[in-house]
Amino acid sequence: MQRAPVAIIGAPLDLGQERRGVDMGPSAIRYAGLEERLAGIGLDVADRGNVVTSEPEALAHGDERARYVSEILAACAELARLVEGAVREGARPLVLGGDHSIAIGTLAGLAAAAGQPGGVIWIDAHGDLNTPETSPSGNVHGMPLAAAVGRASEWFAHDDLTLPAVDPSRVVLVGIRSLDSHERAFLHESGIRVFTMSDIDRIGIERALREALDRVAGPGFVHVSLDLDALDPEVAPGVGTPVKGGLTYREAHLACELIAESGTVGSFEVVEVNPILDRENATALTAVELAASALGQTIL
């Protein structure tokens, strides 16, 4: 990334999943010293506050196939507006989640600013490619990438969301180790590149990330979306859907260092930090450290 100003945007949304607490993720990441860390490496940082979101206790579930989808899309539309505005002002959006459904808004905002779809590296234990028809849970945090590539468009259509926002041929999943059967079937036909944890064990994180960066490069924009459950639960315990066998601390840092070195990534988001499930804010602190690496912090 070039050292343009960084715009921190919080999206404390927790309607996309069932475990409370992820709405406190943006505050936990800020409390762990995010702005101070970024300023300490010479970045110009402006915190633009949080998107206003609804509380699940005050809402009806709606359709069980996609719970709270109307409210989620409304929050994502507001996030998209803030992301688009930051890009148009020459800043790099750094989006803090919230559950991963917020990525619909981040990607839609980037596509609106660019005037065309872009590419994304999706670092996650899960594919997030379910649709309301295929989801086993009805939780929208398992659907944002599907929405972003244009699947189930009738469910995710919104006047203020530019969808589809990414080109499937420029989507790379990294760290995958938990897929539903319908996601596997879609991935075989979609053109999306996948680096499972088994692949990373075989070829290493450096080769996987370099190939991912080559794959997503192109017009429009390049974004990285990091779900903290991509890391092993021993490293990042404070997530809602932990899966054993994830990225190590150093693998995650090297991935982010390579992202920074590439100079092609214009925006970054970290999601699914749940302070209620965390230990001494360790996961939020890890999120801060990884964001700093992705934005240019180096050891020497």
Rank of each mutant, 00 (worst) to 15 (best):
A114C: 09
S267N: 07
E36M: 13
I203C: 11
V174D: 04
A58H: 14
R202F: 12
E35Y: 07
G42F: 06
A282I: 13
I9T: 03
G150K: 02
D167T: 12
G98L: 05
A80I: 05
A230I: 08
R19S: 12
G263M: 11
A252L: 08
S54L: 12
L73M: 09
G175Q: 09
M197N: 12
S190A: 14
D47W: 05
N139G: 02
I259V: 15
V166P: 02
G238W: 04
A77G: 13
D278W: 09
D232L: 09
L161M: 06
G296S: 02
N130D: 13
P164W: 01
A217M: 11
V172T: 12
I104R: 01
G246A: 06
R207T: 15
L73R: 07
V172I: 10
H126E: 02
D167W: 04
A287Q: 07
N130G: 04
L213Y: 12
L277N: 06
G138P: 11
L110S: 05
A230E: 09
I176K: 06
E206C: 09
I41D: 07
A148W: 01
F156Q: 01
T162Y: 10
G175S: 10
G218Q: 00
M143S: 08
V69E: 02
A185R: 14
A80M: 03
E55K: 13
T248Q: 09
L226D: 04
D232Q: 11
L179Q: 02
T196P: 00
V243G: 09
E64Q: 12
V22W: 01
L96T: 13
P168M: 07
S27M: 14
L285G: 14
A32Q: 04
L228P: 07
A284G: 10
M1C: 07
L38W: 10
L290G: 01
T283M: 00
G138H: 10
L82H: 15
I299G: 13
A147N: 12
G150Q: 00
V194S: 03
G204A: 10
W155M: 03
H141C: 01
S190T: 05
I41R: 07
D128A: 02
L34Y: 06
G263A: 10
I41V: 14
E71H: 14
R151N: 09
L79Y: 03
V140Y: 13
R184E: 15
R210L: 15
E57Y: 11
S70C: 11
S267D: 04
